[in-house]
């Protein structure tokens, strides 16, 4: 059994590579840093399923929380608000300690 690479509380960075065709990692979160809230388990890869591939091996899916400020910078409406998305492991890397990656 493959173990998840991230655990709740880990800070993760969303990759900025260009999406190849179908992709479930929203553009507005790419390059942003968030915190893992939960490990949902393993799911088939939507980037492959969209093209009638089996989508295997399955990838871990995480609930990742982003501060509105870290996504939208000064345009954020309220510093206490957050946006949460479910993101696949192959789009995440461990964020370096202290990395804030605030939007400009």
């Amino acid at each position: 059994m493959i173990e998840p690479r991230f655990a709740p509380g880990d800070r993760v960075h969303v990759d900025t590579r260009p999406a190849e065709r179908h992709c479930r990692t929203p553009f507005y979160l790419r390059g942003r840093t968030g915190v893992v809230e939960a490990v949902h388990g393993r799911f088939r890869d939507p980037d492959r399923l969209a093209f009638h591939r089996p989508g295997l091996p399955k990838h871990y899916l995480y609930r990742v929380r982003f501060d509105q400020v870290s996504v939208w910078g000064e345009a954020a409406e309220n510093s206490a608000d957050v946006v949460v998305a479910d993101l696949f492991e192959h789009w995440l890397t461990k964020a370096s300690p202290g990395e804030t990656a605030h939007a400009k």
């Binding site: 799911f43 206490a80 957050v82």
Partner: peptide
Amino acid sequence: SIRVLDSTAD
């Protein structure tokens, strides 16, 4: 506080 949940996956 507002938590926006973006249903991006499964």
